[in-house]
């Protein structure tokens, strides 16, 4: 497969997986209502009342899915949560930020919560910052806003600020201080994916707007008017942390030096994470494949390092 085709395929996969995560969040927000309809008090009457409405259709589809399992209710109860502490069929996943926040504030960790951090950190260690391009539901929104920004740039001038990499670490430390001082709810204003998760959950279950929408709107404005993918590059502490965990990741972008054109900077301008594949920078690479698509000579490719050996 040529690098360009691989890049296009990776981009399609990344959009599909992030849409899948969004759908999963919507589904998990619908689950409490489903469980209430299934085994709640006077549930037969609730199902009867919902007949012929959208909610009844949703109930029937969910019930069909869970009736494939021997014990529908306990299977339905084995999934839940939102973006920073989630269980999917009983497997816990914990955001490293939530892990740190509980560690510094509560000083004790439950076993499942501590083990849930293993899989995300292991993925970041082996593959780099893939969370940002393949899982984070907020980055799907920023994927769209970066296109909107490109469209606006045709007609008006927009600045492209850059900040030092330590800015996100400042936000991380400050968030931990605020978490000790106020509460864990401050992360709902600092982490883009958590603002999305909270907004979806509160909208679906309670029908209200979450206060996290304030900072989500701020993130979108920053993304459009302050710089390309400003939030992902400089603000999000999780992305910074995962990027530095995956500093020596096993899957990297490799440049063919002979084919690369000296004056071409297409990959640097298109990269959503603001790294320079041209200078063989691979820290922070989220393997989104955009540089592989844009490269005119197809000199960028993905290499897999297996215990030091190189295969492409």
């Amino acid at each position: 497969m040529t690098p360009r085709k691989l890049g296009i395929r990776l981009m399609i996969v990344s959009v599909v997986t992030r849409l899948g995560v969004l759908l999963l969040l919507l589904f998990l927000s619908w689950l409490p209502t489903y469980i209430n309809f299934k085994i709640g008090y006077n549930s037969a009457r609730l199902v009867e009342l919902s007949d012929g409405k959208l909610i009844g259709l949703l109930y029937r589809i969910t019930d069909f899915f869970y009736s494939l399992f021997p014990n529908p209710v306990s299977v339905a109860q084995s999934s839940g949560g939102m973006t920073w502490s989630i269980r999917v069929f009983g497997v816990p996943f914990t955001d490293p930020i939530a892990f740190l926040s509980v560690l510094v504030k509560h000083h004790s960790l439950a076993l499942g919560f501590a083990l849930g951090v293993v899989i995300p950190v292991l993925i970041a260690f082996l593959l780099g910052r893939v969370f940002c391009a393949y899982i984070c539901p907020a980055s799907l929104v920023f994927f769209v806003t970066s296109r909107v920004r490109n469209f606006l740039l045709k007609y008006l001038y927009l600045p492209n600020f850059s900040l030092p990499r330590s800015f996100a670490y400042g936000i991380l430390v400050s968030g931990l201080v605020l978490a000790i001082w106020i509460g864990h709810s401050v992360w709902g204003f600092l982490l883009p994916y958590l603002t999305v998760g909270k907004s979806i959950f509160m909208g679906m279950t309670a029908g209200v707007l979450s206060f996290s929408m304030i900072s989500f709107v701020l993130f979108i404005l920053l993304d459009v008017f302050a710089g390309k993918q400003f939030t992902c590059r400089y603000v999000c502490p999780t992305g910074r942390l995962l990027g530095d965990i995956g500093r020596k990741s096993r899957v990297q972008i490799q440049r063919n030096k002979n084919a690369c054109i000296q004056k071409c900077h297409a990959c640097e301008e298109v990269c959503p994470m603001g790294i320079r594949p041209k200078q063989d920078e691979t820290v922070d690479c989220s393997l989104c494949g955009e540089c592989m698509v844009i490269c005119p000579t197809e000199c960028l490719d993905i290499k897999v390092l297996l215990l030091g050996k190189e295969t492409s």
């Binding site: 998990l28 689950l31 409490p32 209502t33 469980i35 209430n36 299934k38 085994i39 709640g40 008090y41 209710v73 109860q77 999934s79 839940g80 949560g81 939102m82 920073w84 502490s85 989630i86 269980r87 939530a98 926040s101 509980v102 504030k105 509560h106 864990h184 709810s185 992360w187 709902g188 909270k198 959950f201 279950t205």
Partner: peptide, 15 residues
């Protein structure tokens, strides 16, 4: 201790 992950609300059969 509570991080507001909403897993308790997700399993509550009484909503």
């Amino acid at each position: 201790a509570c991080i507001g992950c909403a897993q308790c609300a997700n399993v509550c059969p009484n909503d």
